[in-house]
Amino acid sequence: MGMTPGLLPLLQSISANRDDKRSLADFSASAGMPKYTLHRRFKRLLGETPKQYDLRLRLEHAAMLLATTARPVLAIALEVGFESHEGFTRAFRRMFDCPPAHFRARLKTQVNEDSRRRGAGLEHSVGPCLRLYGIRPRSGQERSEMPTSEITLRKVERQPILFVRRRVSRTQLQPLFAECFPKIFQHCIASGIAIAGQPMARYVETGHGLWTIDSAIPVAVDAPSAGEIEAGEIQPGPVALAVHHGAYETLGETHAAIELWIEDSDHRAEGAPWESYVTSPAEYPDIADWRTEVFWPLVDETGRGVAP
C-alpha cells in the first residue's frame, strides 16, 4: 500500500498541533484533496479516520500531561482542544477505561515519577507513526541508490521489551505493525510503563511461507506480560549493525548485505535479527530520509571475544 502525496505533510501537521481541534474541512485543505477522498485514503492507510487519528493523539498527549505534570484536569482538557471538562472526561474514559483523575492517581501509586518523565518525550514522538511502519512508497517515489550504510561490529546492552508475536506472510507486515504497535503503545500509556526507544520488529523465523514476527517496543524497566502482550528482552552481546536508508520495502537488501558481511568475518549469526525504526514516517515526508537500524546477533567463532 503506497503513501498518497499530501498525507505525510498532513500527519506532520496533526502531530505538531495536538492542542488544536480541527474539522475534516481543515484536514482537507492541509492535504490539498477533497474531503471524501482524504477520508477514504486516510482510513485505508491508517485504519482510522483523520478525526479519529487527531482525537487519539490529543488524548495520548493529555495522558502524558496527566502523568508528568500537576496541572488541573480542566487546564489539560482545554490545552488539548476540548471545550469542557465533561466532554474531555467522556472521551478519555472511552480510550483509557477510567476518568482522567483516576488515571493520574493510579499512576502515582504504580509508577516512579522519573520513569514517567523519561518516557514522555519518546511517547510524544512515537505515537503519531505507529500505524505507518512497513508502508511502501507509491510508484514514482525516489528509491535510495545506496540503501545500506557501512556495516559495523557493536555490542548491545540488555534491553527489556514488550512484544506481540504473530505468524504472518511477508505481505502482511504493514497490517501486522499497524495493529500491534498501537496495542503495545496504548498498554504502556494506560499502565504507566515508560517507553525507552523506537518500535522494533524481531524476525524469529522466516521462510517461503509464514514468518514468525515479534512487534516490539523497548521499555525502561522490566514489565509484566498482559494477555497477548508478552514481556521479553533484547539480550546483551555482539551484533552486526547497519543503517538502512529509505523505504521499508528494500530492507531485504540491507539484511542480505549483513549476511554477506558475516560470512566474510570471524563470526556467525545466532539468534533472531531485528529492526529498529529510528525515524518516524509522520515526521519525515521524504522517504529518502527514513532510517532503520538493522541488527544481527553474533557469536565469535574464534573465541577471541568481541570488540566493544
Rank of each mutant, 00 (worst) to 15 (best):
S265I: 12
T212Q: 13
E233A: 15
M200G: 09
I262M: 04
W261C: 04
P273K: 11
G232W: 06
T254Q: 01
G237M: 10
E228Q: 13
I217A: 08
V278L: 14
Q186P: 02
G192S: 05
W261T: 06
A282E: 07
H245W: 00
I217W: 03
I213C: 05
C180V: 04
R268H: 08
A257L: 01
G237A: 10
T254P: 00
G192F: 14
S225Q: 13
T206I: 13
S265R: 06
E293A: 14
D214R: 01
F185G: 02
T292V: 15
A194S: 15
A178E: 00
W261A: 12
V239Q: 12
E275H: 04
P182L: 03
K183I: 02
I258H: 00
H208D: 06
S215T: 14
L251T: 06
L210H: 10
S280E: 12
G207V: 09
E270L: 14
A257N: 01
E249S: 09
A194G: 07
A256Q: 05
A282F: 02
A240H: 04
F181N: 09
C180F: 00
E205G: 07
E270F: 12
R268M: 12
A231T: 13
G232E: 14
V221C: 08
I217S: 06
C188W: 07
A216R: 03
D266G: 15
G192N: 07
A226Y: 10
E249Q: 07
I213L: 15
A256P: 00
A242D: 05
W290S: 13
V219Q: 10
S276A: 15
D264L: 11
H267N: 11
I229N: 11
F177C: 10
M200K: 06
Y248F: 10
V219I: 15
A269I: 09
E293I: 02
W290Q: 10
E253Q: 09
P273L: 07
E228A: 11
Q235N: 11
I229H: 05
S215K: 03
Q198R: 10
L260R: 14
P281I: 08
V243T: 14
A194R: 03
E259L: 09
A288T: 11
Q235C: 10
R202Y: 03
E179I: 02
I193W: 06
A196E: 12
L173M: 08
I229Y: 05
Y248L: 02
P175Q: 04
P238M: 09
D264A: 15
S280M: 07
A178M: 02
E233C: 12
S215A: 15
G271A: 11
I184C: 04
A242N: 06
D264S: 15
I258Q: 01
L260C: 02
E275M: 07
Q174N: 03
